[in-house]
Amino acid sequence: MAQPVTDPAAAKSTGMDVSLEHIVKAYGEHVVLDDVSLSVREGEVCAIIGPSGAGKSTLLRCINLLERPDSGTIRVGDTTIDAGQEVGGKQLHGLRRQVGMVFQSFNLFPHLTVLRNIALPQERVLGRSRAEAEDRAMELLQRVGLGDKPAQYPSRCSGGQQQRVAIARALALDPKVMLFDEPTSALDPELGLEVLAVMRELADEGMTMIVVTHEMQFARDVSDHLIVMGHGTVLEEGQPEKIFTDPATDRTRRFLRAVLER
């Protein structure tokens, strides 16, 4: 803290940010992302909001190449990928090692216990020993408030608990960036709160996060950087507070009125 310049962690992390440049994605005739660029600095929480069908989730899924853009450049830390070219397995692996993802539908593995859900990827991807992986899993379970659940199967957990397990599973691989794809949309409002609390905590600890969300309160309070999307383009971006109080475009204004005044 005293010597920020020589702090090795800080020095190592200067290159650690995410940028997307000129991303284009179309399904046949239908253009989902039309030349979208965005950049997120280290430690920043970036929220992406907008009406459904705006291309938010597709954009997020382009970051770890679950969705393959037709063209554009994706950079995460020191890995740069040109979407127009063949992506090698090693390059893809390098990218995904740095990026954790949380899905709307949790996507836990139903045949594995909560503990194994978190430990197995560590063992297979990072080559950790079983004991090491399970220790780390327990530590994370405690952190997300589920220290009493390791032996449970996902189907015996509430949606909010499942989503917190999914967050722990992603964190266990020590990602540099976390992607959240509408993490609370499949949850009852009260269960959503548990998940949002964990996300808030993560943000406070300085995790770089990109969050596609319908939770306007979260977008407004927690994010440092707000992006409003519509029809496959970025309508507006900047300081959340400023956009919420004084949106620059008519489209943003209409969208915000629709979601806030219901």
Partner: peptide, 19 residues
């Protein structure tokens, strides 16, 4: 979705099949 999760976690395709 579970297959996507294995991809996002960086698991190899044989691992995803096997586990």
């Amino acid at each position: 979705g579970e297959l996507e999760a294995t991809e996002a976690l960086g698991m190899s395709r044989p691992d995803a099949l096997r586990f």
